[in-house]
Simulated assay, not measured.
Amino acid sequence: MPEMYSKWVACWGNATSITDRKEATYAKDLTLRYPIRACFSGNKLRFHFSNLTGTEPVTISEAYVAKDVPTPITFGGHTSGTIPAGEEILSDEIAFDVTAGETLDVSLYFAGFTQMNAGTAITGPLSGGKYSYGNFAKSAELPDNLTRKTNWIYFLNTVDILTEEKNFALVCFGDSITAQDWPDYLTLRCAREGFNNVAIIRRAVSGTRILREYSCITYAAYGLKGATRFPIEMNVAGARAVIVQHGINDIIHPVGVEVNKFRPWSDMPTADDLINGVRSLYITHARKLGLKVYSGTLLPIYGWRTYNENRDIVRMAFNQWLRTAPEFDGCVDFDKAVRGHENPKAFSSGFDSGDHLHPSARAYEAMAECVPEELLT
């Protein structure tokens, strides 16, 4: 092993949560392929696979990583591996030369009936994959007539690379805002501006809340609450810091049982509830891991279908704490980067995706641009 490669660092990663409960929850004879951008050079890889939210074991029949010629991913020397229900597994270390900037394809094949209950949906210019009916895990190209694109990342949770000591990971923790585009734009910014020693690791699930989670299949894909997610998702090799941008769903979800029996008003938090949740669930655990913790302010919600003044009062009070609390190492003021000048309760012109909650592509780029350089060097 060259001495220059001595440190394991996560170079790609996502959360694993409960997938959306549609009519079909099983697959068979299925190939998944995910492109992985390598931000570091190195000479070994290892792969984390998660069945955290599955209720049955999942067997990966074959797995490969490829630039040109596919290299088998093995598990205890075997070409197949089983992920127990509710658990995560780590592959063998795979000798594989990587040059920073290359894109690797990770292909997984599932021969038997497989419960597709563990994964997460992500978007962005670097995100997504493909699936094919049949075993094409070793094929250079997937057949067009049997293949479709997907934004669901199933089972593949994190990719680590054996790399140089100077390299590190920055974790982006949150909900749908972070499951969407800004972490990808931050990765592209790092490449463009020469921040070559940092990997942006996304740990985000659409719909999740800090304080609560749903127990019905209608909202199951909104995922696990912060107390459950955070300790699991901070398992990131080489992590130096985490940006926490979480809490808007706690504020916007409750509507009362007369409107939706799964969303009682008793779920509605105060700003102090959110503050205490972040302190006890996130900051305390991150400090135990030796991580720096940066807050991320919550974005405008004016015009969202459940908007009212009381919700915005909670959001703004929580944001004020996120900006000023001495418990943090700093604040990434996403709200300031995307809000309007004339009406700061709303998105700036061109920054609203149209639903008054999620940013537009331009706004996601602005979010990436506002991340301080101190987090990237």
Rank of each mutant, 00 (worst) to 15 (best):
L108N: 07
W12A: 06
R202H: 07
E342D: 14
F110W: 02
E23N: 11
F173L: 09
M367E: 09
I161S: 14
F110S: 03
I200P: 04
S295G: 08
A286C: 11
A111G: 10
F47H: 02
G86V: 07
A241G: 03
A220T: 01
A317V: 01
G277S: 06
D312S: 02
R46Y: 02
G76P: 07
I248S: 14
G303A: 13
L211P: 01
R192L: 02
L281E: 05
T71L: 05
E164L: 06
G13D: 03
A363S: 14
S353W: 15
L186E: 00
T284S: 15
G290R: 14
Y5V: 02
F136A: 12
V236L: 08
I94Y: 14
I252K: 13
G277L: 08
I18L: 10
I248L: 15
S127T: 02
D352P: 04
N167S: 04
W304N: 15
P84K: 06
N43A: 02
T377S: 07
V293P: 07
W12F: 12
T19M: 14
A118Y: 02
E369L: 08
S50T: 01
A239W: 09
E87M: 12
G303F: 05
T306D: 12
R209L: 00
S360M: 09
S132E: 05
